[in-house]
Protein backbone atom coordinates (compact mmCIF):
# COMPACT_ATOMS: atom_id res chain seq x y z
CA UNK A 1 0.00 0.00 0.00
CA UNK A 2 1.48 3.28 -0.95
CA UNK A 3 -0.63 5.05 1.57
CA UNK A 4 -1.72 4.15 5.01
CA UNK A 5 -4.43 1.59 5.30
CA UNK A 6 -6.06 1.78 8.68
CA UNK A 7 -7.97 -1.34 9.35
CA UNK A 8 -11.17 -1.11 11.21
CA UNK A 9 -13.08 -4.11 12.34
CA UNK A 10 -16.67 -3.13 11.84
CA UNK A 11 -18.59 -1.79 8.94
CA UNK A 12 -21.60 -2.64 6.88
CA UNK A 13 -19.93 -2.95 3.53
CA UNK A 14 -19.77 -6.68 3.25
CA UNK A 15 -21.38 -8.09 6.29
CA UNK A 16 -23.20 -11.02 4.78
CA UNK A 17 -20.75 -12.14 2.13
CA UNK A 18 -17.28 -13.55 2.04
CA UNK A 19 -17.14 -14.27 5.69
CA UNK A 20 -13.61 -15.60 5.60
CA UNK A 21 -12.39 -13.93 2.44
CA UNK A 22 -11.24 -10.41 2.99
CA UNK A 23 -12.16 -8.68 6.18
CA UNK A 24 -13.88 -5.54 4.91
CA UNK A 25 -11.87 -2.61 5.98
CA UNK A 26 -11.81 1.11 6.09
CA UNK A 27 -8.76 2.59 4.50
CA UNK A 28 -7.76 6.20 4.86
CA UNK A 29 -5.37 7.72 2.36
CA UNK A 30 -3.78 10.91 3.53
CA UNK A 31 -0.71 12.91 2.61
CA UNK A 32 2.39 11.69 4.42
CA UNK A 33 3.81 14.47 6.43
CA UNK A 34 7.17 12.82 6.70
CA UNK A 35 8.52 11.22 3.57
CA UNK A 36 7.87 7.72 4.88
CA UNK A 37 4.41 6.16 4.90
CA UNK A 38 3.35 4.73 8.29
CA UNK A 39 5.76 1.83 8.65
CA UNK A 40 3.78 -0.61 10.78
CA UNK A 41 0.85 -0.96 8.33
CA UNK A 42 3.34 -1.06 5.47
CA UNK A 43 5.29 -3.91 7.00
CA UNK A 44 2.08 -5.70 7.99
CA UNK A 45 0.83 -5.59 4.40
CA UNK A 46 4.26 -6.66 3.19
CA UNK A 47 4.18 -9.67 5.47
CA UNK A 48 0.58 -10.51 4.60
CA UNK A 49 1.36 -10.63 0.88
CA UNK A 50 4.70 -12.40 1.10
CA UNK A 51 3.18 -15.41 -0.68
CA UNK A 52 2.75 -13.16 -3.70
CA UNK A 53 6.52 -12.53 -3.76
CA UNK A 54 7.44 -16.20 -3.48
CA UNK A 55 4.88 -17.25 -6.10
CA UNK A 56 6.04 -14.45 -8.40
CA UNK A 57 9.60 -15.76 -8.05
CA UNK A 58 8.44 -19.28 -8.83
CA UNK A 59 6.37 -18.23 -11.82
CA UNK A 60 9.09 -15.96 -13.19
CA UNK A 61 11.64 -18.76 -13.04
CA UNK A 62 9.13 -21.07 -14.64
CA UNK A 63 8.57 -18.61 -17.51
CA UNK A 64 12.27 -18.11 -17.98
CA UNK A 65 13.09 -21.77 -18.39
CA UNK A 66 9.86 -22.83 -20.01
CA UNK A 67 11.34 -23.16 -23.47
CA UNK A 68 14.74 -24.65 -22.77
CA UNK A 69 15.38 -28.19 -21.61
CA UNK A 70 18.82 -27.38 -20.20
CA UNK A 71 17.32 -24.26 -18.61
CA UNK A 72 17.81 -24.81 -14.92
CA UNK A 73 21.08 -26.70 -15.45
CA UNK A 74 22.58 -23.49 -16.80
CA UNK A 75 22.07 -21.90 -13.41
CA UNK A 76 24.66 -24.27 -12.02
CA UNK A 77 26.72 -24.67 -15.15
CA UNK A 78 27.29 -20.95 -15.62
CA UNK A 79 29.02 -20.22 -12.30
CA UNK A 80 30.82 -23.56 -12.48
CA UNK A 81 32.33 -22.82 -15.89
CA UNK A 82 33.24 -19.32 -14.80
CA UNK A 83 34.90 -20.72 -11.71
CA UNK A 84 36.92 -23.07 -13.94
CA UNK A 85 38.05 -20.13 -16.08
CA UNK A 86 39.07 -18.07 -13.07
CA UNK A 87 40.80 -21.11 -11.56
CA UNK A 88 42.87 -21.61 -14.70
CA UNK A 89 43.64 -17.92 -14.79
CA UNK A 90 44.75 -17.80 -11.16
CA UNK A 91 46.90 -20.93 -11.35
CA UNK A 92 48.50 -19.79 -14.60
CA UNK A 93 49.25 -16.38 -13.13
CA UNK A 94 50.78 -18.04 -10.10
CA UNK A 95 53.07 -19.91 -12.48
CA UNK A 96 52.03 -23.49 -12.70
CA UNK A 97 50.32 -25.92 -10.44
CA UNK A 98 50.59 -25.71 -6.69
CA UNK A 99 49.95 -28.58 -4.37
CA UNK A 100 47.00 -26.68 -2.96
CA UNK A 101 45.27 -26.51 -6.34
CA UNK A 102 42.05 -27.97 -4.99
CA UNK A 103 42.04 -25.54 -2.08
CA UNK A 104 42.35 -22.62 -4.48
CA UNK A 105 39.57 -24.03 -6.62
CA UNK A 106 37.37 -24.55 -3.54
CA UNK A 107 38.02 -20.99 -2.40
CA UNK A 108 37.11 -19.56 -5.82
CA UNK A 109 34.03 -21.77 -6.14
CA UNK A 110 32.44 -20.97 -2.80
CA UNK A 111 33.34 -17.30 -3.09
CA UNK A 112 31.92 -17.04 -6.59
CA UNK A 113 28.72 -18.88 -5.69
CA UNK A 114 28.16 -16.62 -2.70
CA UNK A 115 28.98 -13.50 -4.68
CA UNK A 116 26.59 -14.54 -7.44
CA UNK A 117 23.81 -14.94 -4.92
CA UNK A 118 24.22 -11.30 -3.90
CA UNK A 119 24.74 -10.21 -7.50
CA UNK A 120 21.51 -11.86 -8.69
CA UNK A 121 19.60 -10.27 -5.80
CA UNK A 122 20.92 -6.87 -6.81
CA UNK A 123 20.78 -6.98 -10.61
CA UNK A 124 17.38 -8.62 -10.97
CA UNK A 125 15.98 -6.68 -8.02
CA UNK A 126 17.17 -3.43 -9.62
CA UNK A 127 15.02 -4.13 -12.67
CA UNK A 128 11.99 -5.39 -10.79
CA UNK A 129 10.28 -2.01 -10.47
CA UNK A 130 10.86 -0.70 -13.98
CA UNK A 131 9.72 -4.01 -15.46
CA UNK A 132 6.70 -4.24 -13.18
CA UNK A 133 4.94 -1.35 -14.90
CA UNK A 134 1.39 -2.60 -15.37
CA UNK A 135 1.29 -4.22 -11.98
CA UNK A 136 2.37 -1.00 -10.30
CA UNK A 137 -0.13 1.09 -12.24
CA UNK A 138 -3.00 -1.27 -11.55
CA UNK A 139 -2.72 -2.27 -7.93
CA UNK A 140 -1.73 -0.87 -4.59
CA UNK A 141 0.65 -3.10 -2.68
CA UNK A 142 3.96 -2.61 -0.87
CA UNK A 143 6.30 -2.19 -3.82
CA UNK A 144 9.19 -3.71 -1.87
CA UNK A 145 7.55 -7.08 -2.62
CA UNK A 146 8.95 -6.92 -6.16
CA UNK A 147 12.67 -6.72 -5.27
CA UNK A 148 11.94 -9.14 -2.44
CA UNK A 149 10.63 -11.58 -5.01
CA UNK A 150 13.88 -11.19 -6.97
CA UNK A 151 15.84 -12.02 -3.82
CA UNK A 152 13.80 -15.18 -3.29
CA UNK A 153 14.48 -16.13 -6.87
CA UNK A 154 18.21 -15.48 -6.36
CA UNK A 155 18.17 -17.69 -3.28
CA UNK A 156 16.48 -20.50 -5.17
CA UNK A 157 19.17 -20.23 -7.81
CA UNK A 158 21.89 -20.21 -5.17
CA UNK A 159 20.73 -23.33 -3.31
CA UNK A 160 21.69 -25.96 -5.93
CA UNK A 161 25.23 -24.55 -6.16
CA UNK A 162 25.98 -25.84 -2.65
CA UNK A 163 25.66 -29.54 -3.58
CA UNK A 164 27.69 -28.78 -6.70
CA UNK A 165 30.44 -27.34 -4.50
CA UNK A 166 30.36 -30.34 -2.18
CA UNK A 167 30.48 -32.70 -5.14
CA UNK A 168 33.52 -30.94 -6.60
CA UNK A 169 35.30 -31.07 -3.23
CA UNK A 170 34.60 -34.79 -2.77
CA UNK A 171 35.99 -35.51 -6.24
CA UNK A 172 39.01 -33.34 -5.43
CA UNK A 173 39.62 -35.12 -2.14
CA UNK A 174 39.37 -38.53 -3.80
CA UNK A 175 41.89 -37.48 -6.43
CA UNK A 176 44.27 -35.69 -4.05
CA UNK A 177 43.87 -37.19 -0.56
CA UNK A 178 46.43 -34.71 0.82
CA UNK A 179 44.17 -31.74 0.11
CA UNK A 180 43.46 -29.65 3.19
CA UNK A 181 39.76 -29.14 2.81
CA UNK A 182 37.87 -29.87 6.02
CA UNK A 183 35.29 -32.58 6.39
CA UNK A 184 32.16 -31.92 8.33
CA UNK A 185 32.71 -29.59 11.28
CA UNK A 186 30.39 -27.90 13.76
CA UNK A 187 31.22 -24.58 12.19
CA UNK A 188 28.96 -25.33 9.24
CA UNK A 189 26.16 -24.44 11.61
CA UNK A 190 26.99 -20.78 10.82
CA UNK A 191 26.42 -21.19 7.10
CA UNK A 192 22.62 -20.53 7.14
CA UNK A 193 23.17 -17.35 9.18
CA UNK A 194 25.77 -16.09 6.76
CA UNK A 195 23.61 -16.93 3.75
CA UNK A 196 20.74 -15.03 5.39
CA UNK A 197 23.02 -12.03 5.94
CA UNK A 198 24.12 -12.13 2.30
CA UNK A 199 20.44 -12.22 1.30
CA UNK A 200 19.59 -9.26 3.54
CA UNK A 201 22.57 -7.25 2.25
CA UNK A 202 21.65 -8.11 -1.35
CA UNK A 203 17.98 -7.24 -0.81
CA UNK A 204 18.89 -3.92 0.82
CA UNK A 205 21.18 -2.96 -2.05
CA UNK A 206 18.55 -4.15 -4.55
CA UNK A 207 16.07 -1.74 -2.96
CA UNK A 208 18.52 1.12 -3.40
CA UNK A 209 19.38 0.28 -7.01
CA UNK A 210 15.75 -0.42 -7.94
CA UNK A 211 14.84 3.08 -6.77
CA UNK A 212 17.77 4.60 -8.63
CA UNK A 213 16.76 2.72 -11.75
CA UNK A 214 13.35 4.40 -11.70
CA UNK A 215 15.00 7.81 -11.80
CA UNK A 216 17.94 6.96 -14.02
CA UNK A 217 17.16 4.24 -16.48
CA UNK A 218 20.80 3.54 -17.30
CA UNK A 219 21.58 2.48 -13.73
CA UNK A 220 21.27 -1.11 -14.82
CA UNK A 221 23.93 -0.79 -17.48
CA UNK A 222 26.26 0.86 -15.03
CA UNK A 223 25.51 -1.87 -12.53
CA UNK A 224 27.07 -4.53 -14.76
CA UNK A 225 30.47 -2.80 -14.67
CA UNK A 226 30.07 -2.00 -11.05
CA UNK A 227 29.42 -5.67 -10.23
CA UNK A 228 32.47 -6.78 -12.20
CA UNK A 229 34.77 -4.34 -10.43
CA UNK A 230 33.22 -5.37 -7.14
CA UNK A 231 33.96 -9.01 -7.94
CA UNK A 232 37.65 -8.25 -8.47
CA UNK A 233 37.79 -6.19 -5.29
CA UNK A 234 36.33 -9.08 -3.31
CA UNK A 235 38.40 -11.88 -1.78
CA UNK A 236 37.38 -14.47 -4.35
CA UNK A 237 40.26 -14.64 -6.81
CA UNK A 238 42.61 -13.71 -3.97
CA UNK A 239 42.81 -14.76 -0.32
CA UNK A 240 41.66 -12.42 2.45
CA UNK A 241 44.90 -13.26 4.29
CA UNK A 242 46.86 -11.51 1.55
CA UNK A 243 45.84 -8.20 3.09
CA UNK A 244 47.87 -6.91 6.06
CA UNK A 245 47.76 -3.90 8.30
CA UNK A 246 45.60 -1.05 7.13
CA UNK A 247 45.09 -2.78 3.79
CA UNK A 248 42.58 -4.96 5.60
CA UNK A 249 40.25 -1.97 5.50
CA UNK A 250 39.64 -2.92 1.84
CA UNK A 251 38.05 -6.08 3.14
CA UNK A 252 35.70 -4.35 5.57
CA UNK A 253 34.76 -1.45 3.29
CA UNK A 254 33.37 -4.03 0.89
CA UNK A 255 29.77 -4.95 1.81
CA UNK A 256 30.52 -8.57 0.93
CA UNK A 257 34.13 -8.58 2.17
CA UNK A 258 33.50 -9.88 5.70
CA UNK A 259 30.99 -12.41 4.38
CA UNK A 260 33.33 -13.83 1.77
CA UNK A 261 36.16 -13.95 4.27
CA UNK A 262 33.94 -15.77 6.78
CA UNK A 263 32.65 -18.15 4.11
CA UNK A 264 36.20 -19.01 3.15
CA UNK A 265 37.10 -19.59 6.81
CA UNK A 266 34.26 -22.03 7.29
CA UNK A 267 34.42 -23.96 4.03
CA UNK A 268 38.18 -23.98 3.41
CA UNK A 269 39.86 -23.65 6.80
CA UNK A 270 37.19 -25.33 8.90
CA UNK A 271 37.16 -22.36 11.29
CA UNK A 272 34.36 -20.30 12.78
CA UNK A 273 34.04 -16.70 11.57
CA UNK A 274 35.99 -14.33 13.83
CA UNK A 275 34.49 -11.41 15.73
CA UNK A 276 35.58 -8.79 13.19
CA UNK A 277 33.86 -10.74 10.44
CA UNK A 278 30.66 -11.05 12.43
CA UNK A 279 30.61 -7.35 13.19
CA UNK A 280 31.35 -6.56 9.55
CA UNK A 281 28.64 -8.86 8.22
CA UNK A 282 25.97 -7.67 10.65
CA UNK A 283 26.83 -4.01 10.12
CA UNK A 284 26.65 -4.24 6.34
CA UNK A 285 23.40 -6.20 6.42
CA UNK A 286 21.84 -3.68 8.79
CA UNK A 287 23.20 -0.69 6.92
CA UNK A 288 21.98 -1.92 3.51
CA UNK A 289 18.51 -2.90 4.67
CA UNK A 290 17.93 0.29 6.65
CA UNK A 291 19.35 2.75 4.11
CA UNK A 292 18.10 0.85 1.04
CA UNK A 293 14.71 0.38 2.68
CA UNK A 294 14.46 4.05 3.63
CA UNK A 295 15.45 5.19 0.14
CA UNK A 296 12.98 2.81 -1.49
CA UNK A 297 9.96 3.21 0.78
CA UNK A 298 10.24 6.99 0.93
CA UNK A 299 10.28 7.13 -2.87
CA UNK A 300 7.89 4.35 -3.82
CA UNK A 301 4.79 6.58 -3.96
CA UNK A 302 6.52 8.26 -6.85
CA UNK A 303 6.94 5.07 -8.88
CA UNK A 304 3.43 5.02 -10.34
CA UNK A 305 4.01 8.51 -11.75
CA UNK A 306 7.43 7.81 -13.21
CA UNK A 307 6.92 4.43 -14.76
Amino acid sequence: MTSAPQTSGSNNAGKSRDKNAFAPQIQVFEPHRASLPPLIPYLREFWRRRVFASELAKFTDKAEYLDSKLGKVWLVLNPLLLAMIYYLLVTVLKGGKHNNGITTLAHILIGLFTFYFAQTCITSGAQSITSGGRLILNQAFPRALLPYSSSISAFQQFLPTIPVYIFVIIIGKLMYPATQVPGITWHFIWVPFIVALVGITGFGLALAFATMNVYFRDTNKLLQYFMRIWLYLSPILWQPEMLHGWHRAVLYLNPLGPTLSATSHIWIDGLAPNLAEWIGMLSWALLSIVLGGYFFISRERDFAVRI
Binding site: M1, T2, S3, P5, N11, A13, G14, F22, P24, Q25, I26, Q27, V28, F29, E30, P31, H32, P37, L56, F59, T60, A63, G133, R134, L135, I136, L137, N138, Q139, A140, R301, A304, V305
Partner: peptide, 28 residues
Protein backbone atom coordinates in the same frame (compact mmCIF):
# COMPACT_ATOMS: atom_id res chain seq x y z
CA UNK B 1 -7.15 2.70 -5.14
CA UNK B 2 -4.31 3.88 -2.90
CA UNK B 3 -1.74 3.80 -5.69
CA UNK B 4 -1.12 7.56 -5.66
CA UNK B 5 -1.19 9.33 -2.31
CA UNK B 6 -3.00 12.65 -1.94
CA UNK B 7 -0.95 15.83 -1.84
CA UNK B 8 -3.70 17.48 0.17
CA UNK B 9 -7.01 16.32 1.53
CA UNK B 10 -8.15 12.87 2.42
CA UNK B 11 -9.74 9.79 0.91
CA UNK B 12 -11.66 7.31 3.03
CA UNK B 13 -12.54 4.02 1.45
CA UNK B 14 -14.87 1.56 3.12
CA UNK B 15 -14.46 -1.91 1.67
CA UNK B 16 -12.28 -4.11 -0.43
CA UNK B 17 -11.15 -2.60 -3.71
CA UNK B 18 -10.66 -4.34 -7.00
CA UNK B 19 -9.15 -2.41 -9.86
CA UNK B 20 -8.81 -2.48 -13.59
CA UNK B 21 -6.83 0.67 -14.24
CA UNK B 22 -4.18 -0.39 -16.68
CA UNK B 23 -5.33 -2.88 -19.22
CA UNK B 24 -3.99 -6.37 -18.92
CA UNK B 25 -3.56 -8.58 -15.93
CA UNK B 26 -0.09 -7.25 -16.35
CA UNK B 27 2.36 -9.92 -15.42
CA UNK B 28 4.36 -12.21 -17.55
Amino acid sequence: AGILPPTEGRIIVNGKISTLLALGVGFN
